[in-house]
Design a protein around this nucleic acid. Structure first.
Lengths: 340, 340
DNA sequence: CTGTTAGCGCGTTCAC
DNA sequence: GTGAACGCGCTAACAG
């Protein structure tokens, strides 16, 4: 019944060697002064017994646990969170690392506790993620524990991974412009708070800045800008409903996220207007709904998985330079923009 | 620079005691034959130095790591996955445990590797989760490693946590019936494969069985049943479009998941029909879209977080009986059912 | 060349 | 209250 775990000593015994010899062989130390024969015996014994080193015991000596901590303010709610995690998992698995997950809800106390809990388990490094990208105070970690900020920035000289929102913003405008839209383009979701950068996220400010820059470069201007605080379907619906009460209809809607675009679809449909025949729509995020909508919503995707993967790659790399690492936002073309 | 971690020996030295004494005091062993004074000194020293025990070292002696493995076939895609994880995290945090996450993509090889990786790190137990609940072969673990199946069943005598789909199915029918619907109720999403239980999931069969049982108990029958293989908006749209081409319109739609219901909304809207005035709709899952829709979709929720938490609680409890533990599916009443 | 012994890392536990 | 051994694997020093 007591299926005791196979230890290095078991392997060594079976191979007729000391455990130190077995250790050196299994770890392939460069100075292999051990005989080929001995090496074969050890490897065979290990295989036969199904030996797996006890990571806890090993980590006591070497300062590595092959474990990465992933601290996030939120894990559920959006696909964004789970995408980041999925990407991180994939990259970790590649490197034979495993991920220790912790959620903080954004609460500094839980944050501190989470970090402590992870350090207690000797994680090699920590990915510190936020769902609405923002400026954070990077936690202080022991020298041997690396840190990568994910979807967050910090003024201290740290490493962070962010979506390339500026280029994303430009891409959205380009889609519209390249399709021939030059007038009647309405921006949905702008607010003073974004401009002042006290909005929900720092990257969203860049998203907006990107659209403005591209518009300007092309000599275009927004017909109007609908200020919306909460980027949810209901708010998008209301805003577009109001828009449609005006004498002249918009020709294209640039929505700052998908839920807003969804609200726009609803308002348009209820007014008997059609996407994209009457109004073109582009948006950001590539949420699940973007593919559910009829016609499919063309949107600039948040590259969650790529970001998550990038973060652990940087963590494990070690030689990577500090600063911001931008991940490209893919353009997902569906059917919500009409060629004019 | 070298901020060496504070060890038990440091604490003992500062308190002027042996590390064994410090260990006993900090762990509050029952046989406290240590002086009150000594105890105070140790606690103070620990606090002053900010001592945290090294979990790896401890786990070498006691057979506990305060770490739980969570293996899932998918972590991204649906809110379901992240909900399970979130719930598990919350319960783990309560018990001062931490979660080691692994994803397998349903691939048996990766599954085996994930289990090995977790066992290498001496997890106290493993939660084995699947996103589309199904029969799995429970992995064999060492005696000291507990296992709980999450959203999965196994014929071996194991512990599993599942949504109470049978009651959920009944609840959906009850909502319709209690609102006065007796005729023209159409079931969307049935298929032969569900009945034969070779469909995507075992619990979904129970969902359907629950609706049938409740219909029968109330002396009702479905007007018709639309067989749909893939439960996505596009398929729901097509099915309902066809339905609306018939001479007599349905009065209520019982959709077996939310994306189908979304497709139904789209088809109805495009035909100029209104929910719930013309057609009532109930559904299952409480996906994000359920709250996005206009009017809000009444749906029987998948209790992800509750399930995840339950799984961890059972794992840590140890005295919990084997078998299926059903978690109630909350009824989320919005505005898609009309009182007739 | 081929290998072994001893001791470490950190906290727990038992005999004294 | 303490010293010493132990859990498991790694590594520096040492020996045929």
């Amino acid at each position: 019944m007591t299926t005791r775990r196979v230890t290095l000593a078991d392997v060594a015994r079976r191979a007729g060697l000391s455990s130190s010899a077995a250790s050196m062989i299994l770890n392939g130390r460069p100075d292999t002064r051990l005989s080929k024969d001995a090496s074969d015996r050890v490897h065979r014994a290990a295989a036969e017994l199904g030996y797996r080193p006890n990571v806890a015991a090993r980590s006591l000596r070497v300062d590595k646990t092959q474990t990465i901590g992933f601290i996030s303010d939120t894990v559920a709610s959006t696909r964004f969170a789970s995408g980041l995690i999925k990407g991180a998992l994939a990259a970790a698995e590649q490197a034979e690392h495993v991920i220790l997950l912790a959620e903080t809800g954004g609460d500094p106390t839980r944050e501190t506790e989470a970090i402590a809990a992870l350090l207690d388990r000797q994680v090699d490094g920590i990915v510190f993620a936020t769902m609405r990208s923002r400026e954070v105070v990077a936690p202080v970690l022991p020298d041997n524990t690396r840190l990568v900020l994910l979807n967050a920035t910090s003024d201290s000289h740290s490493t962070s991974v962010l979506p390339d929102e500026e280029r994303g913003g430009r891409a959205a405008v380009s889609l519209l412009a390249d399709a021939g839209h030059r007038e009647g383009i309405v921006l949905l979701g702008h607010s003073q708070e974004i401009e002042r950068d006290v909005f929900r996220s720092t990257t969203v400010a860049r998203r907006l800045a990107g659209t403005r820059a591209e518009m300007q470069d092309r000599g275009l201007t927004f017909e109007r800008e609908e200020s919306i605080w909460e980027w949810a379907p209901q708010q998008g619906f209301t805003a577009v409903e109001a828009l449609l009460a005006e004498p002249v209809l918009p020709r294209a809607l640039l929505c700052l996220n998908d839920p807003l675009a969804f609200g726009a679809y609803q308002a348009l449909t209820e007014r008997g207007l059609r996407v994209p025949d009457d109004v073109s729509i582009v948006s950001f995020d590539n949420d699940e709904i973007a593919s559910y909508l009829r016609p499919g919503l063309t949107t600039i995707a948040l590259p969650h998985e790529g970001m998550g993967a990038r973060a652990v790659e940087l963590l494990l790399d070690g030689t990577a330079p500090h600063g911001e690492h931008l991940v490209e936002m893919p353009v997902i073309v569906r059917a919500s923009i009409r060629q004019v």
